[in-house]
């Protein structure tokens, strides 16, 4: 059983925010973190490996320093890590990202199961997991909270929906995205931490994956960002004052003016 987990190193969203007084963008310090949702994907893979045996490889596409994110996952007991890094990868949209990851997975193959977090916190698109499945032409499901193998060749997943859950079954190889109910990420172990520091992490570029520069990064993308701007600021902040009764009265009037249904 070979499981590949795709992770992303993201800027901590805490570092990018609007100053409420000046209504401009501010950033405090540079801190890159492993996308929080991806920890659940790593945990899901380790749970499957613990139960059924096999090997877990963590894969990421990013700048050279994304290696750090991979080492953090090795410290949890992940077996291998691979970094996809190339100047040509910059500016990739979800199409180009999922194509690049899919090529890497094919190269690592045979892979039985690909696990991703439900989305990344910088883009929040949730498109790479399903996109990967399409590029690999594999069945997939999203928002899984429990994974189980049936007869060694079928994956059964409980998929969280808006109203409850669905029980899904599909043949391997397959792709799933998981949610936090899958289980809290384990703590790094001392032995794994030591190994994580030293383990060699192969770095692959576009050419290694058989991709031309125009198939990856911005030039391989179908969408393009044309403008980035601050959201209309909530700079009409108003603090109410007076006694509790007075504030209650003011708030009710303000909300009625705003035509909030039910008031």
């Amino acid at each position: 059983m070979h499981i590949v987990v795709c992770i992303k190193q993201v800027p901590d969203t805490k570092n990018v925010r609007i100053d409420p007084d000046t209504c401009t963008l501010v950033r405090q310090g540079v801190e890159s973190i492993v996308n929080p949702h991806d920890w659940y994907a790593v945990e899901a893979a380790l749970l499957v490996r613990d139960q059924y045996g096999g090997k877990v490889t963590v894969l990421t596409m990013g700048p050279p320093q994304a290696e750090e994110a991979l080492r953090e996952t090795l410290a949890l007991g992940v077996d291998e890590a691979v970094l996809l890094s190339d100047r040509a990868f910059a500016g990739a949209d979800t199409w180009a990202t999922s194509l690049t990851l899919a090529r890497a997975i094919t190269k690592l193959g045979p892979v039985d199961l690909v696990i991703c977090g439900k989305q990344a916190i910088d883009g929040d698109t949730a498109q790479v997991g399903p996109g990967l499945a399409a590029h690999l032409d594999q069945p997939y499901t999203t928002y899984a909270r429990r994974l189980e193998l049936v007869d060694g060749c079928q994956l059964r997943a409980e998929r969280v929906t808006d109203a409850g859950y669905e029980l899904i079954q599909m043949p391997l190889p397959a792709v799933v995205t998981v949610v936090r109910e899958i289980g809290d990420p384990r703590m790094p172990g001392l032995k794994h931490k030591m190994r994580a520091r030293k383990q060699e992490i192969p770095v692959l570029g576009a050419a290694d994956l058989g991709l031309k520069p125009e198939e990856v990064g911005l030039q391989g993308s179908y969408t393009q960002v044309v403008r980035v701007f601050s959201p209309p600021p909530r700079c009409d902040r108003k603090m109410l004052n007076g006694s509790v009764e007075e504030q209650v009265e003011q708030l009710l009037n303000l909300l009625k003016e705003a035509k909030i249904p039910g008031l």
Binding site: D93, G131, Y143
Partner: peptide
Amino acid sequence: ATGRSFIPRVAVAVETGLTAD
């Protein structure tokens, strides 16, 4: 949850761009 789950697969299948959310 439904749209964000199955539309990305369609976008890849018809080879076009998709903007989420």
